[in-house]
Simulated assay, not measured.
Amino acid sequence: MNWLFLAVAIVFEIAVAISASRAHGFTRPGWTAATLLSGGIATYFLSLALLTFDVGAGYAIWTSVAGVGIVVLGAVLFGQSLSRHKLLGIAVVIIGVAGLQLSGAA
């Protein structure tokens, strides 16, 4: 169940970033509300996941996977570039997260 909680937290963390980019400095009330609500939900589910994950590993996985998701969705939805350097960075993050998992930290 802890992986499900972490997955939900990741999805809502990605929603935070997308909503925040659309909120334009919190000048758009609907997007501002979406940012704050999704942030609360992400944090709640992260806290549930951290009942069984080591805090360092759980938080690292949460932020890393969400970061990769945000970069990929930025490219797919908003036409942002995916350069070789960004792809290399994504690969390094994935290797790092896999290393945390294989170390038994999560």
Rank of each mutant, 00 (worst) to 15 (best):
S19G: 14
T43F: 09
G67R: 03
A66D: 07
L48F: 06
G56S: 08
L51I: 06
A7T: 13
T63G: 07
A98V: 11
G99L: 07
I90W: 01
L77I: 11
G30H: 12
S83A: 05
V55Q: 01
L82S: 04
V93E: 03
V93N: 03
S19C: 15
A15S: 14
K86M: 07
I18E: 09
T52R: 10
A33C: 15
W31M: 15
V55N: 01
L37M: 15
S81I: 04
L46D: 01
E13C: 09
V55R: 00
G79E: 04
A23Q: 11
S38T: 13
F45G: 02
L77S: 09
F26D: 14
D54A: 04
G39T: 12
T43K: 02
R84Q: 06
L48N: 03
L82M: 11
S47T: 08
G67E: 04
Y44C: 11
L82V: 04
A15D: 09
L51M: 07
V8W: 06
S21W: 15
G58D: 02
L48E: 07
A66V: 11
L50Y: 00
V72S: 08
G67Y: 03
A15H: 09
L87I: 06
L6K: 00
F12Q: 04
G69S: 08
T35P: 10
P29G: 05
G40V: 15
S19V: 13
G99C: 09
V65A: 05
S83M: 04
I94V: 14
I90S: 03
R22C: 11
T27D: 08
G67H: 04
V65H: 01
V93M: 11
S19Q: 11
A23F: 13
G99R: 03
A23R: 12
A9H: 01
L46N: 00
G56Y: 02
S64L: 02
V55M: 01
A49T: 00
A66T: 10
G74N: 10
I10S: 05
H24V: 12
L100E: 05
V76D: 05
A57T: 08
E13A: 11
A17Y: 11
S19D: 13
A49K: 00
L36Q: 15
V97T: 07
G30V: 14
P29H: 12
G89D: 00
L88Q: 04
I94K: 06
S19W: 10
A9D: 02
G96D: 00
S83F: 02
V11F: 13
G79I: 03
V92N: 01
G40T: 14
